[in-house]
Amino acid sequence: MATLHTVNKTGQPLELCLRALNAGDNVLLLEEGVYALYEASDVLSDLLKHVAVYVLEADVLARGMTNRDNLDIGMVDYQGFVELTEANDKVVSWF
């Protein structure tokens, strides 16, 4: 029973998501959540030991950001977002 967690902000939504994760879950950072690439890269590198992390491409590009080369974070478009919801049993949104 894997879960996709979407996170749309750093701060409370990201913090609450972190304590709700089970091994094998997926995390998708979107909207303001993509700033975690810069603000919380240490947290993300820890996270990657247990779960797969993705960022939504449109939100990364919109904000003038780039993915972190040193982290294994997948970049997905909306179609990829859909595929993540297919691959997991349920979706939990943190906002």
Binding site: N8, L30, E31, E32, L56, A58, D59, D77, Y78, Q79, F81, V82, E83, F95
Partner: peptide
């Protein structure tokens, strides 16, 4: 915020799939 736009884009992608 952005969530209405995200939802709309997601809905479109769902239908394409």
């Amino acid at each position: 915020g952005q969530s209405s736009l995200t939802a709309l884009s997601f809905a479109r992608a769902l239908l394409v799939s």
